[in-house]
C-alpha cells in the first residue's frame, strides 16, 4: 500500500466507529431529504441547528470527561441551574446573564473536579451528588417555576437571533468545537487527557499532572453545560429549573455513538459532534414522519424508537470494532 493510501487507513478501532457514525448521519439525512418535502428547507435546518446546539455543547464537555475515563452526570441539572441564574441576572445586562450562567456552570464543574481529585470520590458518585444539588438549587432560586428573562437588555439575542444567516447558538457551538478540536488534537494538554484515560497510574508515572488535568476537564464540562443553559433561557425566554432532565444521558449517548470508549483513552471531537447531530436528526425525522400523517407517534413511542436506533448503532460499532481488532 502506498504511503498516501495508508494515511487514510483507520489506525485504531475507534476510527472505524467514527466512520460509522458519519455514514449513519449521511444515510439519515438522505432518507429525510427523499421522504419529506421540507426536510432540507432553510427553516428546518436553522431551527434544527438552533435547538441542537445546546446538546452539542454538553456532548463536547461530556466527551472530554469520558476520554479521561470519567463521567459527568450533572450536566443536565447544571444547564437547568444556569438557565435560571442567567434569567435572573438578565435584567441587569445581557452579559451579566451570560456570565452568570457560565459562571454557575463553571463553579459546579470545578466543585466536581475538586471532589473527584482531592477527596478521591468516584466521578459517577461525585457528579450524581452534584446533579441532585444543582437541581435543588435551581428550584430554590426559581421558586419552583420558570423565570422570565428580560427582553429589554438584548439577552434573548444569544438564543434567538442569527448572524450571517446562521443561528447564534450554532456559531457558539461551532466555535466551541473548533477550540475543542484544537485542544484535543493539537495541544499537549489535550493529548494528556487521552493518556490519562488510557491509565491514570501510567500517566502519573510518565510525569503528567493528572489531578490538574482532571480538574480542568470537569471545569470545562460544567462551563459548557452552563453555556447550554444560557442558550436555553435565551432561546425560550425563560429560565427552566425543571428542564435538563435526561440531558446527561443524551450527551453520553452522543459521545458513545461518536466512537468514544466509555473506558477512556480514545475518542474524537468531530465524531462527538456527528453523534450529537445524529441523535438530534433521529428526533427530527420522527417529527416529520408524524407530520406526514400516515402514523401518529406519541412522544413515548418516539423515545422508544430513539432508544432502539441507538442500540442498533452501538451494536454495529461493536461489530466493526471487534472485527478490526480480531
Amino acid at each position: 500500500m502506498s504511503a498516501f493510501f495508508k494515511s487514510f487507513a483507520p489506525k485504531s478501532s475507534g476510527d472505524l466507529a467514527r466512520i460509522g457514525v458519519l455514514i449513519a448521519l449521511a444515510a439519515l439525512i438522505l432518507f429525510g431529504a427523499l421522504r419529506y418535502d421540507n426536510f432540507l428547507s432553510p427553516f428546518n435546518i436553522l431551527s434544527f441547528l438552533r435547538y441542537n446546539s445546546m446538546f452539542a455543547l454538553i456532548a463536547l464537555g461530556m466527551a472530554l470527561v469520558i476520554m479521561t475515563g470519567g463521567i459527568d452526570l450533572s450536566v443536565g441539572a447544571v444547564a437547568a441551574l444556569a438557565s435560571v441564574v442567567s434569567a435572573l441576572l438578565s435584567p441587569i445586562s445581557w452579559y451579566a446573564g451570560l456570565a452568570g450562567g457560565i459562571g454557575a456552570g463553571l463553579m459546579v464543574g470545578l466543585l466536581n473536579g475538586l471532589v473527584i481529585t482531592r477527596l478521591r470520590i468516584q466521578p459517577f458518585i461525585a457528579t450524581l451528588a452534584a446533579m441532585l444539588a444543582a437541581n435543588g438549587t435551581a428550584l430554590l432560586l426559581a421558586n419552583n417555576q420558570s423565570v422570565s428573562v428580560s427582553y429589554d437588555t438584548g439577552f434573548t439575542v444569544i438564543g434567538q437571533d442569527d448572524f450571517l444567516g446562521f443561528p447564534i447558538p450554532a456559531w457558539i457551538a461551532l466555535a466551541a468545537y473548533i477550540l475543542g478540536w484544537l485542544f484535543l488534537e493539537r495541544s499537549p494538554s489535550g493529548r494528556h487527557v487521552l493518556a490519562i484515560g488510557d491509565g491514570e497510574q501510567t500517566a502519573a508515572l510518565m510525569g503528567l499532572k493528572v489531578e490538574r488535568t482532571l480538574l480542568g476537564v470537569y471545569a470545562v464540562s460544567g462551563l459548557l453545560a452552563g453555556l447550554a443553559g444560557v442558550i436555553l433561557a435565551a432561546q425560550f425566554g425563560a429560565g427552566q429549573p425543571t428542564e435538563g432532565v435526561g440531558w446527561e444521558l443524551f450527551a453520553i449517548a452522543s459521545v458513545v455513538v461518536g466512537g468514544t470508549l466509555l473506558t477512556g483513552g480514545s475518542g474524537s471531537v468531530g465524531a462527538t459532534l456527528a453523534g450529537a447531530l445524529l441523535l438530534g436528526m433521529v428526533f427530527n425525522v420522527l417529527n416529520f414522519e408524524n407530520g406526514l400523517g400516515w402514523i401518529s407517534l406519541s412522544a413515548y413511542w418516539q423515545s422508544v424508537i430513539r432508544g432502539l436506533f441507538l442500540l442498533v448503532v452501538v451494536v454495529l460499532q461493536a461489530r466493526l470494532t471487534s472485527k478490526s481488532t480480531a
Partner: peptide
C-alpha cells in the same frame, strides 16, 4: 507493564509530558 499509554501513538508516548511545541500547540 505499566509504562506506556497503550492507545496513544509511539511518538506521543515518547514525548508525553515534554511535547515539542510551536506557538503553544503541539
Amino acid at each position: 507493564e505499566i509504562n506506556l499509554a497503550p492507545q496513544r501513538s509511539v511518538a506521543e508516548n515518547i514525548y508525553l509530558s515534554r511535547e515539542p511545541r510551536r506557538f503553544g500547540l503541539l
